[in-house]
Design a protein around this nucleic acid. Structure first.
Lengths: 140, 140
DNA sequence: CGGGATCCTTATGGATACTG
DNA sequence: CAGTATCCATAAGGATCCCG
């Protein structure tokens, strides 16, 4: 805990300074994080990181529950941010393949800290929820 | 850091397997990440990590742009997940203070990787956007 | 001060139909 | 196959009023 806390504070200070030096950066960082934090972006990133290059429909099947609309939309946005490469093969039927760029891949890596955290703390969170809900119903 | 990376790779493989083995865990992880990835949760987490314990209104001022409704709502959810502690002082006028739990703090730390990534790749992303938009307007 | 309850507007996203 | 376009339901979120 204390080691984590030290590290945390250091990183935090750097961030705080950066924010004060350039508010434009802060905005963009929030923007980028918001995009990245998006449900489908996260899942697609995950699927592409696992499977490499995939076609549109394959991607749709692997990203369980996504609608075709959101798949297209999310992929376009990710392409715009430079996270994925879209390759169109001029054949019939059309064949379009998507893969992560180096940037996309590095983002996946950066996000792993959060994944690990979530995985490691599932139990803690579940019991926290249960405790909260219990207190809430007692209060009523 | 390389140790973290090793751990990351291992965990990644486990995650890939775990998804197939236990869809319930995957769901919960996604849930947690979605909550955490939420715009306001992220900002509040950031503010609390920087300033320590804060009162409701202070929090509202520091989390620029948030409405009182979203502030309350987000704080309740974070409290439920065990990320923040809410302390009510029985005085008039009421005084309610919020601070991060260890879990909340560790989440902030986990998220630092993403913050750093975003900060480091701002330029890359901006030019990727510009390039994409240029291509898009050429195509029309 | 710290909210809860309500209204109302906008944004999000699914379903469907159509196209090169 | 890989989309685009349209419609529609629901949810998210801001503004406002009120209360202990």
């Amino acid at each position: 805990m204390s080691v984590d806390f030290e590290k945390h504070l250091e990183a935090q200070k750097k961030l705080a300074q950066a924010e004060k030096l350039d508010p434009r950066v802060e905005t963009l960082v929030h923007e980028v994080i918001a995009r990245v934090a998006d449900k489908w972006t996260m899942i697609i990133l995950d699927v592409l990181a696992e499977h490499g290059e995939l076609r549109f429909k394959q991607l749709g099947r692997l990203a369980t529950g996504i609608s075709q609309k959101m798949l297209t939309q999310t992929l376009r946005e990710m392409e715009r941010e430079g996270l994925v490469i879209r390759t169109v093969h001029a054949v019939v039927p059309p064949r379009v393949e998507y893969r992560l760029t180096d940037l996309g891949l590095s983002l996946g890596t950066a996000f792993c800290g959060v994944w690990l955290w979530a995985e490691q703390n599932l139990d803690v969170i579940e019991s926290a929820r249960a405790a909260f809900d219990r207190r809430a119903s007692e209060a009523s």
